[in-house]
């Protein structure tokens, strides 16, 4: 469970996040929706402890992230914006490295890696160095290492960006699977249909503030539009006009 309230963050004179509040509960998929530069990534980075907010609070499973960053990080699995891999390590070594950084005991680690390789259907590439992996294969490695410690909260920053149809599908299936196991899943996206299809709750951010949040229907009602995309555009433009 993640709770964010009154979050604000500036870089010099640039205000990235002005006022963001929402809560994401366990067993639910929360979509963070917003145009580029709206403050999605900054909000997520504050949640996974890479940035410190100027004001407001963020907690994960009731742990204050700023006060107890490492403890909070243990409760999260993250697929960040940067999808970098170590080109000379194999897929399995990537997952093992992150598992060990999470202090997973060795015997548990190898069983968990096999489980993840099966879940993400990547047994055939497990022992190949990641150099030359396709975009989809790389994303799978990133997902597997994010999930290696079986976190109760999973955050995905634009997980389907640049993926082919098959991988996009398996990511969606994975999100469904995590949700059914009672895990909190949050992901950011700018793809409307994906968010509409997968999310129990949507949080729309623009210009660093939450312009609307709720279920798909609630968002459509708030904007008085039948189409989610239209609703999104209308809500975002409303903020831009007042800004």
């Amino acid at each position: 469970m993640i709770e964010v309230s009154g979050l604000a963050k500036s870089f010099g004179s640039v205000v990235a996040v002005r006022d963001v509040s929402f809560s994401a509960s366990n067993g639910q998929v929360t979509g963070l929706l917003g145009p580029n530069g709206a403050g999605k990534s900054t909000t997520l980075r504050i949640i996974y402890g890479l940035l410190r907010q100027d004001s407001g609070t963020a907690t994960v499973d009731d742990i204050d992230i700023m006060a107890e960053t490492r403890r909070a990080q243990r409760a999260m699995g993250v697929l960040p914006d940067a999808h970098g891999l170590y080109v000379r390590l194999t897929a399995r070594e990537h997952i093992a490295y992150f598992g060990r950084l999470h202090k997973l005991p060795e015997e548990k680690l190898s069983a968990r890696i096999d489980e993840l390789l099966r879940l993400l259907d990547m047994q055939s590439i497990a022992d190949r160095r990641v150099e030359g992996f396709s975009q989809g294969e790389r994303t799978k490695v990133c997902l597997a290492r994010a999930l290696v410690h079986d976190p109760p909260n999973v955050l995905l920053d634009e997980p389907t960006n640049g993926l082919d149809v098959m991988t996009t599908r398996s990511v969606r299936e994975l999100i469904g699977e995590l949700r059914s196991r009672g895990i909190m899943v949050m992901f950011s996206s700018h793809m409307m249909h994906e968010v509409a299809r997968l999310c129990d709750q949507i949080v729309i951010i623009s210009e660093g503030i939450v312009v609307a949040s709720g279920t798909t229907d609630e968002i459509r009602d708030a904007a008085r539009e039948d189409n989610l995309e239209e609703a999104f555009v209308k809500l975002v433009e409303r903020v831009l006009e007042t800004a």
Partner: peptide
């Protein structure tokens, strides 16, 4: 190199000082 290859962000999200 870690910065250049964008592996630093995922690495630093791990609960390690």
């Amino acid at each position: 190199g870690e910065r250049e290859r964008k592996t630093l962000e995922p690495l630093l999200i791990n609960p390690v000082e």
